[in-house]
């Protein structure tokens, strides 16, 4: 077999590079010149990319909206908290933990890996049940999953501290670590969507009946995507927990789900580029309006937007996108090199 030429490799990886390089630039530039609050916003954006790309792996490829992915984030975040948080307080505040967790801390890397695996396993088990359903019923059932987890974790006081926050997780997430994880998520999502599994599930998105008639199993293709996306949002959950240093079940509920979905929809849920662009756009909007709500001075006069404006504007913006550009900013396209002239096509295939 001939080694593919550099041009072919470049063409293959271009959609990924077109996303990753600007993100790296943002990290470098804000790291050098940005203020502290801007740097924090960038880290939050990168974590959101991990989460929304994870969400995209299922929602974008299958076309089925999921309201349940915050569940897997929460599972991973809490798992990581149980393993690494506050060794002195754990026996008192979380007395219901099994004693290998209660009486010791587990090193960071293994604990992160275990947490992500747990999220993936939870997604797999949930998917085993829910992927049997057709589109809308599946969407509503993911909502049921979200509520089940929320009810259980907010009342399981001896293990999760109920709806109180677990405080004091080690905060080791830096901009570079967040960037590495975002790149990892993007690469995984890209390789998945161009793999045979990815093509199969995208076919089911376009036409369930034709795909099924071509021998694609709706159930298995969706289950694979759901599980993979569970791993990725789990990674996002671990990152968020160790960036904020606190875990609270209320952060993994409807408001969060709305924001993640808004990011995906605004960018365009049909492509990986859409997921990433959506995160960047919505993060920027949220940041700008938060600052305006906090108050700015123009010409010596202090004025601010009333609290809650930011949420109204994000929701309104999302509706406008849905009405006037329903496939989102990227409209389902990846960022690719322009097509080669016709005569080269034979060479690529050969």
């Amino acid at each position: 077999m001939k080694m593919p030429s550099l041009a072919v490799i470049a063409r293959f990886w271009f959609p990924v590079l077109a996303l990753v390089v600007p993100l790296a630039l943002i990290v470098v530039v804000t790291g050098q010149f940005g203020g502290l609050s801007l740097q924090r916003t960038v880290i939050e954006m990168l974590i959101s990319i991990v989460i929304v790309v994870g969400l995209y792996v299922f929602v974008g490829n299958s076309g089925i909206i999921s309201f349940g992915h915050a569940t897997f984030m929460a599972i991973a975040a809490y798992a990581s908290a149980w393993q690494t948080c506050c060794e002195m307080l754990k026996p008192i505040t979380m007395s219901g933990l099994p004693h290998f967790l209660r009486d010791q801390s587990i090193p960071l890397l293994p604990s992160a890996i275990v947490s992500v695996l747990l999220a993936g396993a939870a997604a797999f088990l949930t998917g085993l049940v829910i992927m049997r359903l057709t589109g809308l019923a599946a969407s509503i059932s993911t909502l049921a999953v979200l509520f089940i987890l929320n009810v259980v974790y907010s009342n399981w006081d001896s293990v999760t501290m109920g709806s109180a926050s677990i405080v004091g997780l080690p905060t080791y997430v830096t901009a570079w670590l967040a960037l590495i994880c975002a790149v990892l998520a993007i690469v995984v999502a890209y390789l998945y969507q161009i793999s045979a599994f990815g093509l199969a599930i995208r076919a089911t998105r376009e036409d369930e009946v034709a795909a099924a008639a071509s021998g694609i199993s709706l159930y298995w293709s969706r289950l694979i995507a759901f599980t993979l996306s569970g791993f990725l949002v789990g990674l996002g959950g671990v990152l968020q927990a160790h960036y904020l240093g606190t875990v609270s079940i209320n952060n993994f509920f409807l408001s969060f789900t709305f924001l993640a979905l808004a990011m995906l929809i605004v960018g365009g849920m049909g492509s990986l580029a859409g997921a990433v662009v959506g995160v960047v756009v919505i993060t920027a909007m949220v940041d700008i309006f938060r600052r305006l709500e906090g108050g700015i001075s123009i010409g010596g006069q202090q004025w601010s937007l009333p609290a809650g404006t930011q949420e109204l504007i994000i929701a309104g913006f999302m509706l406008l996108i849905l009405v006037f550009r329903k496939d989102g900013i990227m409209a389902g396209r990846e960022i690719g090199l322009p097509q080669r002239p016709q005569r080269d096509k034979g060479l690529i295939n050969g």
């Binding site: 076309g63 969407s139 709305f258 929809i265 809650g308 109204l312 929701a315 309104g316 509706l319 009405v323």
Partner: peptide, 28 residues
């Protein structure tokens, strides 16, 4: 109404956005 010919998933998402909008409006 502007979304009437969209698929059910798009409608579902748009109603989620409307709900979020209204909820924050009441809060405001």
């Amino acid at each position: 109404r502007p979304l009437r010919n969209s698929n059910p998933s798009t409608l579902l998402i748009s109603s989620f956005a409307v709900s979020y909008f209204l909820q924050n409006l009441v809060m405001l």
